[in-house]
């Protein structure tokens, strides 16, 4: 594997996979065995990860409800209507962006805490933080290269 794009794509795949696996495990055990130690004990983190994803979806739902309510309450005055639509058009990318930043907050919760029960959490945290540091430096170098030469990758 080589290149900034592949590493970023790999991280996205990893996060998405762990997102789905943790949710599947948690939801399945919630139905079949709610008294399982994996769900009741705090240190296994599965419940917390499910709640994190629930918060994300709830935020998006609140936004859509708010926008819908705003549009419904408006009088069919042309100016107000277009203003509300443009406001919603502004709100959607803003909330997508906030969802993405919240997703970045969930990365350590999903990856690092997966090793929490084993006890190698500090080591994994150290290794992955070095990888993220290298990714950041590569990104800055690419930006500088783009400014100097005009070639974008």
């Amino acid at each position: 594997m080589a290149g900034f794009k592949d590493i970023t794509l790999g991280f996205i795949i990893l996060i998405a996979a762990m997102f789905f696996i943790y949710n599947f495990v948690g939801k399945y055990l919630e139905v079949t065995n709610p008294s399982s130690q994996l769900l009741t004990d705090e240190k296994y983190q599965i419940k917390k990860t499910i709640n994190l994803t629930k918060d994300l979806t709830e935020t998006m739902e609140n936004v859509s409800l708010k926008t819908k309510k705003g549009l419904e309450n408006s009088n069919p005055d042309a100016v107000t209507y277009s203003f509300l639509i443009s406001k919603a058009l502004f709100e959607i990318p803003k909330n997508v962006f906030s969802t993405v930043t919240k997703g970045f907050e969930t990365i350590p919760e999903i990856i690092f805490k997966g090793f929490g029960g084993v006890g190698s959490q500090e080591l994994v945290y150290f290794i992955i933080s070095i990888v993220f540091l290298i990714l950041g430096i590569i990104f800055i170098i690419y930006v500088i290269e783009f400014i100097r030469t005009g070639r974008a990758r």
């Binding site: 790999g10 943790y22 079949t32 399982s36 990856i111 997966g114 090793f115």
Partner: peptide, 24 residues
């Protein structure tokens, strides 16, 4: 894991860690 007490949850977490390592 659908029956409490058969498998220690630590081993379950180890399997999740193995999946992370496998994806990486």
């Amino acid at each position: 894991e659908t029956y409490s007490g058969i498998l220690n949850p630590s081993y379950f977490v180890i399997i999740l860690g193995m999946i992370i390592l496998g994806i990486i």
